[in-house]
């Protein structure tokens, strides 16, 4: 084999090996590298109570309620399989909407009640002018 081809072969081999390692590591780390728990993850593998975790999912339509004290919010975070009630005291980002994505930082006080200390909005990958979106999202607005 010519030296040039040998180097080409070695580098391709190294590249394939590295790519394989990355794919393996990424899928292996899927749970550890996840930035938040989805409700169905909680169902499958519940995190310890009183441990700081993030809970992410969709804010169920019609679930956002403001309590009488004026600062406490209650809403439900859901995915296709599970739903978890969340309580939060404080100011939410503008993009926190019903039917939209959310990541809540906080703790499970019981397996079925999450208390958030911070709320982040997670939007999806769609971008469009308001007139295109119609009133699809306007209804969900939390005032």
């Amino acid at each position: 084999m010519k030296a040039k081809n040998q180097r080409l072969f070695l580098i391709i081999l190294a590249a394939v090996a590295m790519l394989g390692a990355v794919v393996l590591a990424m899928s292996g780390l899927k749970d550890q590298a996840a930035y938040f728990y989805a409700p169905s993850d909680v169902l499958r593998n519940p995190p310890a109570l009183d441990r700081d975790v993030r809970l992410g999912g969709m804010v169920r339509k019609g679930s956002v309620k403001k309590l009488a004290d004026g600062v406490t919010l209650r809403f439900v975070v859901e995915d296709e399989r599970h739903a978890i009630p969340v309580e939060f005291k404080g100011i939410v980002p503008d993009l926190f909407r019903e039917g939209s994505g959310v990541v809540a930082e906080g703790k499970f006080v019981t397996p079925d009640q999450f208390v958030a200390s911070n709320i982040l909005a997670k939007h999806d990958e769609r971008y469009m002018p308001p007139q295109m979106a119609g009133d699809k999202h306007k209804t969900g607005r939390v005032s």
Binding site: A33, Y35, F36, A38, K122, D124, E125, R126, Y127, M128
Partner: peptide
């Protein structure tokens, strides 16, 4: 695509086209 992230998924892909409106 593989991990749960705060960052949204990809908007433009060769296979699925774009979820960004043409005007943008």
């Amino acid at each position: 695509l593989w991990w749960r992230t705060l960052h949204q998924g990809q908007s433009i892909s060769v296979m699925k086209g774009s979820s960004i409106d043409a005007s943008m």
